[in-house]
Design a binder for these strands. Structure first.
Lengths: 228, 228
DNA sequence: CGATGGTATGACAGAATTGTGACAGTAGCA
DNA sequence: TGCTACTGTCACAATTCTGTCATACCATCG
């Protein structure tokens, strides 16, 4: 979830400002002061987004952008150009070189972060938006709803993710810690018993439609979503 | 999606070149050879973008640009100025007259198309003129009106666009970001919470007719327009 | 049958998210 | 030029969601 943002900027003051704002928003800022340094970082680890200064010592930002676009491995990394020039023409050149967006200095931190979020959002991997059908239920991620024989069921965020996971992995027993990994995320630390509570809440929501029996307890092992 | 581009240019050779490139890129080129001809076309059908020669017989391009900007109906049509002059002062004049961009002759077709795409990309999304019926409401873009079981509801511009979007995309949950992109436009940078405020204003307007429940909050995800 | 280990439930406080009223700056309009 | 309506933001209120407990419940086994 935390995106790595590579900031390529030679002016230390601006670099610092950018890093501060980026960190503030919950992203991780990786610093580079020229194209070569940036390239080294990129070869070490692919960032999720590159914030690239137009004017850089050595090869320019545009050049780096072109290089990124030419390389198969780095082709899809979104780039936001950072330029002091207000000349519209330069902006266009920046876009043509493969940048996804550009912003002129001086910029407001708010606008910058808005653009970063916008770009990340556009490039965000499409998670399975497909409607899932299982056990007589129909779960639609886009509508964020469950259709139980014509009756619509609304769930809270966690219960929704939980049911979604179960419906996409039916007939199989999952331990509490496996469920925590898949539904909550690998990194979060919560008590295993918390799963029990959410299972109950999910059953409670499915009870009016008598679909609560779909979620079965396997004593000593975990839970299972099963039609039988 | 195919944008109509009005090309106002008196030299036939350039006109032809422009039309060729524009068509090549999948847009539709409408030709005009002077300001009057352009005006006639504009009154007949609003183009999505105007490519305007600086020097025109009769009234100049700048004059036409001013006229376009002075008129409410044509105010938001993006304009790209086409000029042979490289004089910086003229550039400024061109931009001040309301042009969104300018390009000096001779220009490369590639650069021109880049600018056209960039300007079109910045443009706020247009809504269709068709009357939409959903959830018991009837929204007429041409009359800028909502009919709620015979009761007419007036909305501000933003609330109207918001409701229009919802009614044309019912049952589906949209995040605040997505709503900003679709209703405000990709290039607009406002706080996500601003969406909440407009949702409230929209609900408030729909409340007297008890249609406010059509807009549902999906906690953690966004909002949804749904009849159920 | 009672002991034991595992599971279900209800209650809760804190966290996170959303709803609202107010406000200042702008744009549109007469 | 004033006036009115519309917008985007805030701060604060209201609501919902989460993770944990303590306790009740239940199956299994000695």
């Amino acid at each position: 979830m935390t995106a790595n943002i590579l900031v390529v900027e030679d002016e230390a003051a601006i670099q610092e400002l950018l890093a501060f704002n980026i960190t503030q928003c919950g992203y991780r800022a990786i610093e580079a002061y020229d194209a070569d340094g940036a390239w080294t970082h990129i070869n070490h680890e692919l960032p999720d987004l590159i914030l690239l200064d137009w004017m850089l010592p050595g090869s320019s930002g545009v050049e780096l952008a072109r290089r990124l676009r030419a390389n198969q491995r780095t082709r899809n990394i979104p780039i936001i150009m950072l330029t002091a020039r207000t000349d519209e023409r330069d902006k266009i050149l920046g876009l043509e070189s493969g940048a996804d967006d550009y912003i002129t200095k001086p910029f407001s931190p708010r606008e910058l972060m808005a653009r970063i979020r916008a770009v990340l959002r556009r490039r965000a991997p499409q998670m399975s938006d497909e409607t899932v059908v299982a056990g007589g239920l129909e779960l639609s991620p886009t509508m964020h709803r469950i259709n139980a024989n014509g009756v619509m069921i609304d769930l809270g965020p966690t219960e929704f993710r939980l049911l979604h996971f179960f419906m996409t992995h039916p007939e199989r027993v999952y331990s509490r810690s496996q469920l925590l990994d898949h539904v909550w995320g690998d990194h979060v630390f919560v008590e295993e018993r918390t799963v029990d509570v959410h299972i109950r809440r999910l059953r409670q929501a499915l009870e009016p439609s008598s679909f609560d029996s779909l979620i079965q307890t396997v004593r000593g092992s975990g839970y299972r979503f099963s039609s039988s």
